[in-house]
Design a protein around this nucleic acid. Structure first.
Lengths: 300, 300
DNA sequence: ACAATAAGTAAAAATAATTTACCAATAAGC
DNA sequence: GCTTATTGGTAAATTATTTTTACTTATTGT
């Protein structure tokens, strides 16, 4: 796109010119724009001086556009209308822009997926984009407006945090596997564990065994997967024991697809919550989503 | 036309936004507009604050329009282009606007009409409008840019005056009438005089007779007309004697259609000249016309 | 002729824009 | 890997612009 060539008129004077031209009166224009009449008079003078010739006929105590003024008015009016139109269209576009929610894939499948229809009923005008593919464990503020994450770090300045679930770490497996085997923590070492290939899962298993007073020695027949969602599905299928942190197994426990073979539970270092940039609190959609998630989490 | 509704953006910031958006750089925009980069930075900030959301993505030390910014840019660009386009069209229109010349009907017929083609050759781009129908004896500044008039008044402030012809008052008639009659001023009282129904013509006859040392007594067979041009035509036809002031009979005297029955001539109170508003001297067309008329009048 | 209304003008006041001087972040060069 | 140059952002100070106040002129209506 090329550079604009030509000297633009004094832009501030355009409003005054438009109003005075339309109303045929300096005083009325001043009233409309909440200014005094000399201000309008001066604005018109500036514009006429910029152009080099008059736009109004001063007949007695009234002013009226002359032929050139009438001709010019059309352009000014169009330009100002374009500005307002653009602003309006932009605002509409802004209000309809996607609302980007970031959540881990497992939480999305096991907790969000079954609930999101309720949010969409609540706020059908919001164009929600759920982003689960983020490689990042942390809040990706460039690609999300809000995120549900598990964090054990201090929330940096400029970010808001709303707690959702406390960290509850416990093993789950299929009812069949639980019934066929004994129920002490030590015995888990002899069953196939479904290990998720992440630092936090390694830490969680260690922590759980440690808090149960049992040494965690790498058992045989363990399976490593890269997503908890997969591990849970395998647990349902009786392939082994998965360790969950938070609400991701709640649905399967309620339906009986999974059970807790041992009641022991420990806490992780962090907690589940919603994270967002503080200035996003002005955004109505953030407020709505935040309240809704809290309600769903039973955390009012 | 209805009032513009909606709050316009800070108009001064539009130029800065346009340049920065187009160039993708605050500094380059500042260079283009001969400002410093904080000025552009501030303009952009004003615009973003007015809208309530950002238009640029700040990635490191570079800026780039975001999706909304790109969308908005189209409108801003269009509005600014409309302003420039209007200005250009207006200037063109202004330069091509009619050049309005006021002249008495008789001078127009007897002096201007035969010469004007030369001016049109000289300045073919000028859209000359000759106005002779003005009832006014004086300069009608609302309807003319320049006028050729006879004036015996002081030229008011704010007006320019250029002398053309001195006042020369003398009688004319057809050669036939002149040859058939005696040639003394007294005798004119006995011939049919063609009196133009205007104060100045009454005064001219009186003045002429008085300066010739003859009493002017209302003769018989006089004819009153309302335009000197008609009186001159009647004089050509031998109907009587007309009195002229200035160059209006020069053409007919040269061609022999009219003669001066008596050589006596007197002066009126004023002179012929060009009158115009002083600020019109900036107008090239006024200068051109003025010079041309002076040349035609042999008054260089 | 007089008051009332509208617009123009000039100086003062108020407001807005720009610059200067600084900082922070990034990219490039050694 | 450290330094340097470039780019953008910020805040206070300066400068420029806009607006107002107070007054004048001109016209309209009574």
């Amino acid at each position: 796109m090329k550079e604009l060539k030509g000297e633009l008129p004094p832009l501030k004077s355009l409003r005054g010119f438009e109003a005075a031209a339309r109303l045929g009166s300096v005083s009325m224009a001043a009233d409309e724009l909440s200014l005094t009449h000399p201000a309008i008079s001066h604005q018109i003078k500036m514009l006429e001086e910029h152009l080099g010739y008059p736009l109004f006929e001063r007949a007695g105590r009234h002013i009226q556009l002359n032929a050139e003024g009438k001709f010019y008015y059309g352009y000014i009016r169009k330009a100002l209308e374009t500005l307002l139109e653009g602003q309006e269209a932009l605002t509409k576009r802004w209000e309809e822009r996607p609302f980007r929610v970031q959540a881990y894939i497992t939480l999305s499948i096991k907790w969000l997926a079954g609930r999101l229809n309720r949010f969409r009923n609540l706020a059908p005008h919001i164009d929600l984009h759920l982003n689960t593919s983020g490689i990042d464990w942390e809040f990706d503020e460039d690609n999300a407006d809000i995120a549900i994450i598990y964090s054990d770090k201090k929330i940096p300045d400029g970010y808001g945090w709303t707690s959702l679930f406390e960290s509850k770490i416990f093993p789950v497996c299929s009812p069949k596997l639980a019934n066929e085997n004994s129920l002490s923590a030590v015995d888990l070492n002899n069953l196939p564990l479904l290990i998720v290939n992440s630092e936090s899962d390694f830490w969680n298993w260690d922590q759980w065994f440690h808090s149960a007073g049992v040494a965690h020695h790498e058992g045989k027949g363990n399976l490593s997967v890269d997503t908890l969602a997969v591990a849970l599905e395998m647990a349902c299928a009786g392939e082994g024991i998965a360790l969950v942190n938070g609400p991701v197994a709640d649905g399967d426990l309620a339906s009986g697809r999974l059970v807790r073979p041992i009641n022991h539970m420990c806490k992780g270092k962090g907690e589940w919550g919603l994270i967002y940039q503080e200035n996003m609190m002005d955004d109505l959609r953030v407020k709505l989503f935040l309240d809704w998630v809290c309600e769903e989490a039973g955390n009012l």
